[in-house]
Lab assay of single mutants.
Amino acid sequence: QVASGNGDRDPLPPGWEIKIDPQTGWPFFVDHNSRTTTWNDPRVPSEGP
């Protein structure tokens, strides 16, 4: 069983990049398509309500 969020081996969607926040050391994700950033890994399906 693979733990949720453990998709580091999967490629990011086109136009996405991983960067590290220098203050926290946490990775965040840059979507160059929409010029936005998020803490949520785009490779992990979001949980519904």
Rank of each mutant, 00 (worst) to 15 (best):
W16N: 13
I18Q: 08
S46R: 11
R35I: 00
V30K: 03
L12R: 12
P22L: 06
D8A: 13
T24N: 13
E17H: 01
G7A: 14
N40H: 09
F28Q: 14
R43T: 09
Q23L: 11
F28H: 11
N6G: 06
H32R: 06
E17R: 01
S34A: 12
T24S: 14
D8S: 10
T36D: 00
G25I: 00
N40C: 11
R35A: 07
G15W: 00
P42I: 00
P45D: 08
L12S: 04
F28M: 13
P13R: 08
K19F: 02
R43P: 03
P14I: 02
W39V: 02
L12T: 12
G7N: 15
Q23R: 12
T37D: 02
P27C: 12
G5E: 15
A3S: 07
G48R: 09
I20P: 03
Q23K: 11
P42L: 01
G7L: 13
S34N: 11
P22I: 06
D31C: 03
W16F: 14
S34Q: 06
P27N: 14
D8F: 07
F28K: 08
D10E: 11
I18G: 10
T24F: 00
D41C: 05
G25A: 13
P22A: 02
D8M: 06
E17K: 06
D41L: 00
G25F: 04
D21P: 00
T37N: 05
P27H: 14
T36Y: 07
G48P: 11
L12A: 07
G48W: 02
D10T: 10
I18W: 01
T37L: 03
N6A: 14
N6L: 13
N33V: 06
D10K: 06
R35N: 14
N33C: 02
V44Q: 10
S46Q: 14
W39K: 02
P42Y: 01
P14A: 05
R43L: 02
P27R: 15
R35W: 01
R35C: 09
K19T: 09
W39L: 04
D21S: 02
Q23V: 06
D41G: 03
K19L: 07
F29N: 06
G7C: 15
D8C: 11
A3Q: 09
G7H: 15
G15K: 05
R43C: 04
P14S: 14
D10M: 14
R35D: 04
I20Q: 11
Q1N: 09
P49V: 13
N6M: 13
R9A: 10
G5V: 15
G15H: 10
N6T: 15
E17S: 04
E17F: 01
N6W: 11
P13G: 03
A3E: 05
P22Y: 08
N33I: 06
H32G: 03
F29R: 03
A3K: 13
R9L: 06
G5C: 15
V2L: 13
P27W: 12
T37K: 02
P13H: 13
F28N: 02
G25W: 02
N6V: 14
G5K: 15
P22F: 05
G15C: 01
E17N: 00
D10G: 12
G5T: 15
K19C: 07
V2S: 10
F29T: 04
A3G: 06
E17C: 01
E47D: 11
E47K: 10
R9Y: 08
V30N: 12
E47G: 08
D21Y: 00
G7K: 14
F28C: 11
R35M: 06
D31S: 00
F29D: 04
Q1H: 08
S46A: 10
T36S: 09
A3C: 03
R9C: 07
D31Y: 05
R43M: 08
S4Q: 15
N40K: 09
F28W: 02
G5R: 15
F29Q: 03
W26T: 15
E47Q: 05
T36P: 01
P22M: 01
T37F: 00
P13M: 01
Q23F: 09
A3N: 14
P45N: 11
W16V: 05
E47H: 07
W39M: 09
P11W: 04
F29W: 06
H32I: 03
P13I: 03
Q1V: 14
G48Q: 15
V2P: 01
P49L: 07
V30F: 05
P11T: 14
W39T: 06
D8R: 10
S34E: 05
W26R: 14
D10V: 08
H32T: 04
G48S: 09
S34Y: 05
G15V: 00
G7S: 15
L12H: 01
V44T: 07
H32D: 00
Q1K: 15
Q23W: 06
I18P: 02
S46M: 12
P13D: 02
R9N: 10
Q23A: 11
P42W: 01
T24C: 10
P11Y: 09
P42N: 05
V30D: 01
G7D: 15
L12W: 05
G25C: 12
V2K: 10
W39Q: 01
S4P: 08
